[in-house]
Nucleic acid binder design. Structure first.
Lengths: 248, 248
DNA sequence: CTATATTGTCTCATTATGGAACAATAATAA
DNA sequence: TTATTATTGTTCCATAATGAGACAATATAG
């Protein structure tokens, strides 16, 4: 048991945190135009879970989300969205977490704060795979990317949380593309080609899109500024570069 | 102080409820095709608030929402949707609630459970104005309908909650119209005319819609079954009646 | 029987979308 | 240098969706 874990066990009342309130994160990353999510694994238990965290007593909940996300990925200034709050009694199952704690040599009592009932606020994030440094939390052994098609079985209701996150993300793509809070801007270079943006869309939606329709739609949104062609990466006509128009 | 209030003060630990977790409700009602929402008023304080409630320790959160909604309106089997969870520190302001409790002759200590920080899950509901019997909670004096245009100043962040609810409702109208969980079905007679459905839409959206386009769109959704004409309510051609197709 | 209000449908112009074609062109191969 | 190739920006046209209005049908009021 390392120092962090020791602190976690000592703090058997969860002092400093809002009781009964957790956050779970569906962190989407892009690797060579594959969509992956970040999962925690607990060795010797074959249990997998979404990264999660708690809200401090003197902290805005949305700020807490940014803090935890930064702790898990090393990233700040990324796209983060709250999508649903999960409060079923069926979430309240001591067994898996007890298994995890025991595998770490801990021996929590029944009323240890981590074993109580939690309501969990779901957030999803979109991050640049390259820039992230996945970091496990004190209870986990590893923090690894999994493609959506190859997810292992997840603890509790975490599969449901992933599905709801993906559904919300896909439904909100167009509406949250532009502006200061664009989900796409952090995933692209300052200047990017239409093809690169289209591949991002295709990765998230899991389907091919028509090139001419996509170009027409993006340009009609009036959120892109066309720059000079500068690309020199392939045996073909140079594409224009674009950047998002950031209104002042 | 009545019996309920006494019980509320005695229970200064909030025993039986999940600590720190509240729910706030934006209850939309239709009165002669006007959109109203239900507000609580605290006499001698000029404070107005959304109806709210708490989750019991052995209760699903969404079930708790139905229970509280039933307590406030006497209605069950209505459309209810969770739309956002509010967790800013700025919500944590003892002043208004203390004012209310003192106006009721209570004298809560600083650590009374009602005066602690709460994270609140927002739900909105659509109900039939005629069928509801608005009922104030133990702390409130009245529970009254207000039109959206004439809302009084609201406590804490409740104005923000109303705005977010309305935004979500309007965005989801089409998507959640049909099926077993239709928002519109509880607001209409079993059989209704296209004009009645259109007026519902117009009331919620706050704008007129084109008659022919609306009819075309509704019929194309393939969620309506046309019945025989039976209407006999005006000096004009009898409209068809429709009902929602409920797939088994 | 006539007037009136509202309905169901139709028409037509406008706009959006799907799907393909085509010339332009930057790197690569010959 | 020239031909080849992949990809791009644009155009085109058929089809579909939408806005705005016209018109006949008709149940009640007068």
């Amino acid at each position: 048991m390392n120092e962090k874990e020791a602190r976690l066990e000592q703090n058997s009342e969860g002092a400093g945190y809002l009781p009964g309130l957790a956050m779970d994160f569906v962190i989407f990353g892009f690797d060579q135009y594959q969509l992956k999510i970040l999962l925690l694994e607990y060795r010797n238990t074959s249990l997998f879970a979404l990264p999660g965290g708690f809200v401090k007593e003197n902290e805005n909940m949305n700020d807490a989300a940014r803090r935890v996300l930064s702790e898990r990925t090393g990233l700040s200034d990324i796209y983060l969205d709250q999508f649903y709050t999960f409060g079923d009694l069926a979430r309240y199952d001591q067994a898996p977490l007890r298994t995890i704690m025991q595998a770490k040599g801990m021996n929590p009592t029944d009323d240890h704060w981590l074993l109580r009932r939690f309501v969990s606020v779901g957030y999803y994030a979109l991050i640049d795979f390259i820039k992230a440094t996945p970091t496990p939390d004190p209870l986990s052994d590893t923090c690894v990317w999994y493609t959506l098609e190859n997810l292992p079985e997840l603890m509790l209701d975490h599969k449901t949380i992933v599905e709801k996150a993906l559904e919300t993300l896909r439904a909100d793509l167009d509406r949250k593309l532009g502006g200061i809070d664009s989900w796409a801007a952090p995933l692209l270079a300052k200047a990017f080609t239409m093809g690169e943006l289209q591949k991002l869309y295709e990765t998230i939606l899991g389907q091919k899109l028509r090139r001419s329709s996509f170009q027409r739609k993006m340009l009609s949104l009036a959120i892109l500024e066309r720059l000079e062609k500068q690309y020199s990466g392939g045996a073909h006509k140079a594409p224009y570069l674009y950047q998002f128009i950031m209104e002042k």
